[in-house]
Amino acid sequence: MTDILEIARVQVLDEGKGLDSGQALECLRLPDERLGDLLALAHDVRMKWCGPEVEVEGIVSLKTGGCPEDCHFCSQSGQFSSPVRAVWLDIDELVKAAKETASTGATEFCIVAAVRGPDRRLMDQVRKGVEAIREAVEINVACSLGMLTQEQVDDLAAMGVHRYNHNLETARSHFGNVVTTHTWEERWDTCLMVREAGMELCCGGIVGMGETLEQRAEFAAQLGELEPHEVPLNFLNPRPGTPFGDYPVVSGPEALRTIATFRLALPRTILRYAGGREVTLGDLGTRDGMLGGINAIIVGNYLTTLGRSPERDLDLLDELKMPIKALSQTL
């Protein structure tokens, strides 16, 4: 039987064709003693098909907490006893956050709202915020506002929103164990509308929510079918008061194996470090992931959890001689 890494070297590295679900599963099952080889191949794939640049992004929550959905990992759900409560940012605070993000060298600033989908009030607030940010600072504006109608997709595109984030979160076969108030198909439909409207699509998920390795491989292949411009890869950081609050943290080797496998399934995609890397990987593991397929990073804090300081991440990129992607390259 041919070794999966030998297959991937030809199929992914040489030809640029991502792994299918069965092949991804073989990578996820590789023993720890082969992890170094897997990471090295993933890094070679990243360098060949994406290049050395790293895209830096900051995020801010326009509306935090009070969400009606029951995503079992999320402390912003109004259905759980987690301590997060509904808060709105005003436009001045939004612009200040965008300026602070741009000062780190970031080219992307994402406005996030904890909602099922935006109502008229939220769309009006986003419109004002996007306009104010574009007048005040040179940075690409992205949004993550839940599920959209076609009219809302067209409206965001007309505002000049550069990229829209809407995560599938997990494999289709596992989604019902994570969310019950909407379907995987509803999320998929929003992703298709975003892509067809000409905005860049950011779509990823969370690893460590009780899925099997088979389902993790299924998820990688489903993202490959969707072909998003960017995949944010989160690792579950269990939040008190949520149904997943007592779940174990993904181990470092397992997280790195997942990163490398997703790179091999998505050779041309921006693969972004997102939430949970601090508790799962720590400093050394974060470095290993940057050498195992990751080519984008969220700097600073997340929506309801703390991240590493931007300076530490930027110092790491400097140490690894990975240049930050310039704004002119992403506009």
Rank of each mutant, 00 (worst) to 15 (best):
A8P: 01
D20G: 08
G22V: 06
Q23A: 12
C27A: 03
L30A: 02
P31Q: 09
L38E: 05
H43W: 02
R46E: 12
M47E: 11
E57C: 13
P68W: 13
Q76F: 12
V95L: 08
S103P: 03
V112I: 09
G117S: 10
P118E: 04
R121Q: 15
D124M: 12
I139A: 03
T149P: 00
Q152M: 08
V153G: 10
Y164D: 02
N167F: 05
E169T: 01
T170P: 04
F175K: 02
V179D: 15
W184G: 03
W184D: 04
T190E: 00
C191P: 06
C191A: 14
L192S: 12
M193H: 09
G198R: 14
L201E: 11
L201I: 03
V207W: 00
V207T: 08
G210E: 08
L213A: 12
A217G: 10
L223F: 09
H229D: 07
P240L: 09
G241H: 07
V249Q: 13
S251D: 15
F262T: 00
F262Y: 09
R263D: 01
L264G: 02
L264I: 07
P267E: 05
Y273N: 04
G276D: 08
E278I: 02
V279C: 10
D283W: 15
G292D: 12
G292K: 00
G293E: 04
T305V: 11
L306N: 15
G307M: 01
D313A: 05
M322C: 02
P323Y: 06
Q329W: 05
T330F: 01
